[in-house]
Amino acid sequence: MIQANAVPAADGVEERSVIVAGDYLNKLSGEQIEYECKRRLAAGCKELVVNFAQTELVNSIGVSILLGVIDIASKNGASVVFSDMNEDTVELFDMLGLTKHVTIV
């Protein structure tokens, strides 16, 4: 399940978007995240926050899609923030190099 909370900037453009990943970041929810992110970036968003508070496991498809999000964001001059990851997820992202491209909070 994805819940997206946007923080609108003063001029009305959502400069910072928060996207909550589901409890299991698999193919389906992964693609929803990708779709959400693309939509926000197209709307002028400059900072994407992916919240992993409800995420226990991320599989390879999830990793791949997050890599895609990082790629698109950098092409759009936006930054990516991963928040509330559990220990396993941090370690996985660290091992695969995702953490090099994002800010972790």
Binding site: K27, N59, S60, I61, G62, V63, S64, I65, L67, I70, D71, M95, L96, G97, L98
Partner: peptide, 15 residues
């Protein structure tokens, strides 16, 4: 498409 995702995610391949 899924297979490419799985391979990319397994190793952490950008593109």
């Amino acid at each position: 498409r899924t297979s490419l995702h799985l391979l990319s995610g397994a190793i952490g391949i950008m593109r």
